[in-house]
Design a protein around this nucleic acid. Structure first.
Length: 272
DNA sequence: TAGGCCATCTGGTCCT
DNA sequence: AGGACCAGATGGCCTA
């Protein structure tokens, strides 16, 4: 290999590395956006990637159950679905968040870890909390009121999910319904504003970069079009249309939540 | 100190 | 040829 060829190869490798970094940043940005719409988003306690994906899966599953079977989002079945397969710290986070702003009506049985494992029911006065001496004290995070509390008016029959008898601390094979009944196709544009601290992207090896990660990225969105229920959508969503607000600041972004006054009649609600 | 999590680099593969 | 995607390797940071 001649020296010139070596240099070409090196230059190509450097370019490829830069592209790969950029690609991973995009992936991480998408994960951050996902974190923000999770029911326990916290700037101080960031969910790991794997836990974010697990919680997202559970969240979709739980919400689909709310729509399908009328399960109350305040029921313990809902919380159990949310924490299924999550680690104990993440389960604590979810439980702590759900506790905020809502009447502690839940009396969970010891399904997501019993005494000694951080069971929900184990902590007096905190029906949703997992006692865990190893965890930092609350507040674990904040529950965006729009995430779940919008559904407070929707009281379906209490639902006991027969398949949610466990909430293991490991990574069990997922045996719940995998596909939520909702399929929405949309037309969006997302604009990412360059951070004034763009150099913060190079936070590798910077102590505490996790804490600065979210605050150093600023987003804004401009949405066009509307959400339209796709052909594979749940029957309840067929022929539904959700108009999206324009220029929603991503820092205060919450998804267009579906609010129901009665089954089959959905409108969108945007909260900031 | 071990383990978890992460960002980055790297080479391989596939596609245009 | 070059870009996108992927997975393995590596090293840093943090926490129990």
């Amino acid at each position: 290999m001649t020296k010139a060829r070596q240099e070409r190869f090196r230059a190509r490798r450097i370019k490829a590395n830069a592209r790969e970094r950029s690609r991973m940043h995009g992936l991480n940005d998408a994960l951050d956006n996902l974190r923000r719409v999770m029911p326990c988003y916290s700037k101080t306690q960031k969910l790991s990637k794997i836990e974010t994906l697990r919680l997202a899966r559970n969240y979709i599953w739980a919400l689909s159950e709310v729509l399908e079977s009328g399960q109350s989002p305040e029921s313990h079945g809902f919380v159990e679905m949310l924490c299924k397969g999550l680690s104990q710290p993440t389960s604590n986070l979810v439980a702590g968040c759900l506790q905020l702003g809502s009447t502690p009506v839940l009396k969970l049985e010891d399904k997501c870890g019993g005494p000694g494992m951080g069971g929900i029911a184990g902590q007096a006065g905190h029906p949703l909390s997992f006692p865990s001496p190893g965890l930092p004290s609350p507040p674990y995070g904040s529950l965006e009121a729009s995430h779940l509390l919008q559904m407070k008016g929707f009281k379906g029959p209490t639902y006991d999910n027969p398949s949610s008898n466990e909430c293991s601390s490991g990574t069990p094979p997922y045996d719940g319904p995998l596909t939520p009944p909702l399929s929405i196709s949309g037309n969006f544009t997302l604009k990412q504003e360059p951070s004034p601290h763009e150099s913060d992207r190079n936070f590798t090896s910077h102590a505490g970069h996790h804490a600065h990660y979210l605050s150093s990225h600023h987003y804004s969105t401009s949405t066009t079009g509307s959400l339209v229920a796709g052909p594979q959508a749940h029957p309840l969503f067929q022929a539904s249309r959700y108009e999206l607000p324009l220029d929603v600041a991503f820092d205060s972004f919450t998804p267009p939540h579906l609010v129901t006054s009665q089954m089959g009649n959905f409108t969108s609600a945007q909260s900031t």
